[in-house]
Design a protein around this nucleic acid. Structure first.
Lengths: 213, 213
DNA sequence: TCCATTGGAGAGTGGCACTATCTAAGTAAT
DNA sequence: ATTACTTAGATAGTGCCACTCTCCAATGGA
């Protein structure tokens, strides 16, 4: 398969594919001659994954590159690679170090992590992106004066735990480690909009149930 | 309070506040003289809400304007205003009309909505942004060949329903309708990163539990 | 009076995901 | 073997968008 066909089958313009190649989001094709390269099915899959990360996950190109690099770093164990890939995922402004809102949020997050018994994945005071993202989000709530008591957060945490179980069940339907790693990245990202939109639909429903049509 | 103080208390540069005023994300201050205006606490709160929508919710300025306009449209009922505000919220690429993946996704979404008994908020074939966002997300999963069977979606839907109950409980702690409307917008947006980061933390935990440290 | 500040408006900036153009080197059909 | 394409690769735009800068005339405080 050459560039034009890869483009046609994926629906991505050739110029964009060239851009992704340049940005190392896509491995180069197998060189046939000095000016021709051959692409395989794995390029097609990878290209679609890249598009998902960027368009569905609204991830900057640089971040997508890190995520993919972590996912295929041969020097890491399978679980570390999964962790590294998810690690590289997220977003949002960094919490300010000496912001009182952030400090309070941090303490609350530590409480939630402890109460959930989440000791494997991270230490308290861990600075994984997901942890920092959570601190930043709660700091925002605090700053705006919106409620975020620990019990309410624990409700969310418990539900997140159930989601994770369902997600990992899905990942385990894949047999080989590389597939699993790609699946965990893709599913983490692709199910986010699913979850958010379901939540909004459910809110609309619940709202009209409570406050009348 | 004048511009400089509003800027100082919110941490938002004066130039940016002027920009928001121009874009009608912030109502004009009360004109004192031909060249002076006075801002109140409600401007401060509104400004922080705008920042939340744009920075935390990563919402385009135009979308934020629509959301806020819907939230304060006096001609609508309280519930309609809430719905309209949440209605205007989300994003992501629109599902293509004659894409077979989108068609399959649409059918599946309708099944989920029916099985959840979500008939109040929307009709089948409804085109609310949340509905379209869900269809687009599932179409992406389909296109990439990732599993998204209805049972798995129902797990997510059920959890989303529980989240909505918890969220609306929080909204009901506010007494006056305008507060509630602002709360439902703010909480919908501000709890999204909370939920997503908790999910990622839970995944890391669950993953290391299953696949070893 | 004098000068910093204000609201307002228009133009400019920077980041970023593309997209267009060009070139030298193949390839395919005639 | 001539002609018309296509390709990889590099460089230079383009378009969008959230700001940010620069002016300006009119104040308002010292």
């Amino acid at each position: 398969m050459r560039l034009a066909e890869l483009s046609e089958r994926s629906g991505v313009p050739t110029a964009t594919i060239k851009y992704y190649l340049r940005e190392r989001l896509l491995p180069p094709g197998e060189r046939i001659t000095a000016t021709q390269a051959e692409y395989g099915e794995e390029h097609l899959r990878r290209l679609r994954l890249v598009r998902s990360l960027i368009q569905v996950g609204r991830m900057p190109v640089a971040t997508a590159r890190e995520v993919l690099a972590a996912a295929e770093d041969e020097s890491l164990s399978q679980n570390t690679r999964m962790g590294a890939a998810v690690w590289a995922l997220p977003h949002g402004p960094e919490p300010d170090e000496d912001d009182p809102h952030a400090a309070r949020a941090r303490a609350q997050v530590d409480t939630v992590v402890r109460r959930m018994g989440w000791s494997h994945g991270q230490e308290l005071g861990d600075t994984s992106p997901a942890y920092r993202m959570l601190v930043a989000a709660i700091a925002s709530l605090d700053r705006l004066g919106y409620p975020h008591d620990t019990e309410h957060l624990l409700v969310h945490a418990r539900l997140a735990g159930e989601l994770a179980v369902a997600d990992l069940d899905l990942v385990e339907t894949y047999d080989t480690p590389p597939e699993r790693i790609e699946a965990v990245v893709a599913l983490t990202v692709l199910y986010e909009p699913v979850l958010l939109s379901l939540r909004r639909l459910a809110q609309t429903e619940e709202s009209s149930r409570r406050f009348g049509k």
